[in-house]
Computed example of a mutant assay.
Amino acid sequence: MRSFEEDLQALFRHLCIDGIMTNLLKEVKQLKALILGGTGVISRQIVERGLMAGHEVAVFNRGTKRLPFAGDVEWIHGDKSDRAGFAKLMEGRRFDAVIDMISFNETDARSTVETFKHSAGQLIICSSVAVYKRPYRSNPIREDAEELFDNPVFGYAYEKAQMERYLQQVIREGELPVTIIRPSLTYGVGAANLGVLRQNYNIVHRIRSGKPLVMFGDGTTPWSFTFAPDLAKAFVGAIGNKRTFGQAYHATNEEVRVWNDLYLEFGRILGIEPNIVHIPSDLLIRANPGLFAHLYYEKGYSGLMDNAKVKRDIPSFEVAISLNEGLQMMLDWYEAEADKVDADKDALEDRLADLHAQWGRQMDALNV
């Protein structure tokens, strides 16, 4: 297969403008990038955008899912949790950038750093805005104003924060150029995290069936919902970008919404007004800590981020997908291949809505 530069040369020769071609190719640099993951909601978009940018892309994962990307991708199969096996598999390989989408704690990140510190030009690692300690110190939230989460009771945020503390040490010691990107709540094709109960297609099912949808709090917490094709621009824009070395960024949508809008916008697309009932997050977490902890510890606070830093250092990052457009994308995907009702979550949402109705009747009885 011809290289990206060869394709450009052929195009410009055809147009008889070899002089312009020469100048342009001086500015085009094809880099070799490895994505650890590569088939997740965000990482599949990073692969596609990396190919669009002309990079040579390799993907490492366990090989349980193979996606048809719009270009040639090298597939490397293995299990990153097998630390020794992972390091052995990467021996002799060199990459301009390694994008790690599958590290969730310090141990995971340490394995990546130890494996690539002598064979990669840069590590770009996916963290999360969950690492910010609540309540925030700034609004909209700025990276330089916030502290890292320090409460082990919310394991996801705590472990990601511990991972970042380790990476800051790597940055200080100069072992490897590191760029940290912190997504906020991000949706896209393949997502399993949409909705208060992460009920996904159930949202469409319940709106069409006239069933209530449970919202945490009063639904007016400000938020900006991000979609994976936009977020991928930040990761790919960081590849080989020395301005990002040693830096941490959040990269989010900036369309100001509130949480109720998630269901209301689905209703507008479907042409059906949803029935939303509101339950405090401190009660939801008692009903199912594993399912609702993220609401209580993270999403009950404003999710509006200041993107000035990422826009300054990664000019290619721009948000193009509105909430309406993104949810239409999700609906199209659901109806094409993911229109499955999660019966357990549907029953749980029914039960929560019934409890809400009972509380309402009890409150009515007090109004005498």
Rank of each mutant, 00 (worst) to 15 (best):
E74M: 15
K65R: 15
V113P: 05
N105L: 09
L67A: 09
P68A: 14
T112H: 04
G71W: 00
R83S: 05
G78S: 09
F69D: 01
E106A: 13
V73K: 07
F116Y: 02
A87S: 07
H77A: 08
V98G: 01
F116V: 07
T107G: 13
W75K: 07
T115V: 00
S81I: 04
A87C: 02
M101S: 06
R66M: 11
F95D: 00
I102T: 13
S81D: 11
F116E: 04
F69K: 04
G78P: 07
P68H: 12
H77N: 10
F69M: 08
D72L: 15
G85R: 05
M101I: 05
R93G: 05
R94A: 12
I99F: 03
G78A: 08
V113F: 04
F69S: 01
T115D: 04
M101R: 05
T64L: 15
R110N: 07
T107N: 14
R94Y: 14
K80R: 15
R110I: 12
R110K: 14
R110F: 14
F95W: 03
K80E: 03
M101V: 03
G85D: 07
W75L: 11
D79K: 13
I76N: 02
P68K: 10
A84M: 03
D96N: 12
V73G: 13
A87M: 04
G92P: 13
R83A: 12
I76Q: 02
R83C: 11
T115S: 03
N105V: 13
F69E: 00
H77T: 12
D108I: 06
K65Y: 13
W75R: 08
R110H: 12
A97V: 14
F104D: 04
P68C: 10
G85Q: 04
D100M: 08
T64M: 12
K80T: 13
F86G: 02
M101L: 01
D96A: 04
S81N: 15
F69H: 09
S111I: 10
T107C: 09
